[in-house]
């Protein structure tokens, strides 16, 4: 009886209505992201495309064991992956800084063109980024080397892409150059969304530029920054494939082989479907664990969790 009442209650109807509205969108998520997960079963069989799983040999955890079996290689890849990701996270403040700098521009008319033009590198494919850097900076005949040897800064041409010691940093900086302008969009949007009255209030209190940034702008940006930070922590195993595949060369490859290129090389290039699925599952599990850990420590440290 009371159940029935609840079913007729306004609150229930409202909740049901909300859920009904969300349903189609959730259905899309289920169909395109969760349904294909039946493919995870491939990791537990000696899977051959076209042969139904019922006829395939059960492999148990064979492929998962293999992920760790060639220990030296796997750990070298992990060292590179986590090292590069940590550097990326360390420099993740750069787009925020850029957004704030743009918002503080004295010549306001310049802010839009600057923002537009700074996003250009994002639209250039990695293949071209590689050739541009080779031609402009790295090669013996590059513009940089020609100029630098002429004015005597370099005794002999310096090829930055051959520098094994700095290999990680070089890649991180290339990434910063490529992504800062475009990634700053989201922070600019956050800055725009800040309540104008807050600034006025700060001004009334006699705050200068720096103090206003510190007390108003930064707090306005921080929620977005933290969300993205958590996402990049959980994405530590994904450095992207193309950049490292293209920039890794004979001298630096053992420093630049990352998880994504490793999966490509071992699983996809060699057409080992079960093994590459196992690697994929491994990556998903690690990512979700990282997300959970980061999220709960954010709760402990900042008092709010994000997910």
């Amino acid at each position: 009886m009371s159940n029935f009442d609840y079913l007729r209650s306004k609150r229930f109807q409202h909740r049901a209505y909300l859920f009904l509205l969300a349903l189609p969108f959730l259905a899309i998520v289920v169909v395109f992201s969760y349904v294909p997960l039946f493919g995870w079963a491939y990791a537990f069989f000696d899977f051959v495309p076209g042969v139904p799983l019922s006829e395939s040999t059960f492999a148990g955890l064979k492929y998962f064991k293999r992920v760790f079996s060639r220990a030296s290689d796997f750990w070298a890849v992990m060292r590179n992956t986590l090292g590069i990701s940590s550097l990326n996270i360390f420099f993740s403040f750069v787009p925020v800084l850029f957004a704030i700098m743009v918002s503080q521009l004295h010549f306001r008319k310049l802010s839009r063109p600057i923002q537009t033009l700074a996003s250009i590198p994002n639209f250039i494919s990695w293949v071209l980024v590689y050739s541009i850097i080779f031609m402009l900076v790295a090669s013996n005949d590059s513009a940089l080397n020609i100029v630098m040897t002429k004015i005597g800064v370099f005794d002999e041409p310096y090829n930055v892409l051959m520098d094994v010691e700095k290999a990680w940093l070089v890649q991180v900086f290339i990434g910063i150059w490529k992504n800062t302008g475009f990634n700053a969009i989201i922070y600019l949007a956050a800055i725009v969304g800040i309540d104008q009255e807050l600034y006025q209030a700060a001004e009334v209190d006699g705050a200068g530029t720096m103090r206003k940034i510190w007390h108003v702008t930064l707090p306005g940006v921080v929620p977005t920054y933290f969300v993205l930070l958590l996402l990049s922590i959980s994405n530590m195993l994904s450095n992207g494939f193309e950049q490292f595949w293209l920039f890794g060369n004979g001298m630096t490859w053992d420093r630049l082989e990352v998880f994504d290129t490793y999966v490509y090389r071992l699983g996809i290039q060699n057409m080992e479907y079960s093994f590459s699925t196992a690697l994929g599952i491994f990556k998903s599990v690690v990512s979700i664990i990282l997300l959970t850990v980061a999220n709960s420590s954010s709760k402990r440290i900042r008092g709010t969790s994000i997910f």
Binding site: S131, F134, S139, N140, N159, G250, M251
Partner: peptide, 12 residues
Amino acid sequence: LDPDSFTQASDV
């Protein structure tokens, strides 16, 4: 040997 050999791709 061209020292750029170590970093150049085949198109170069």
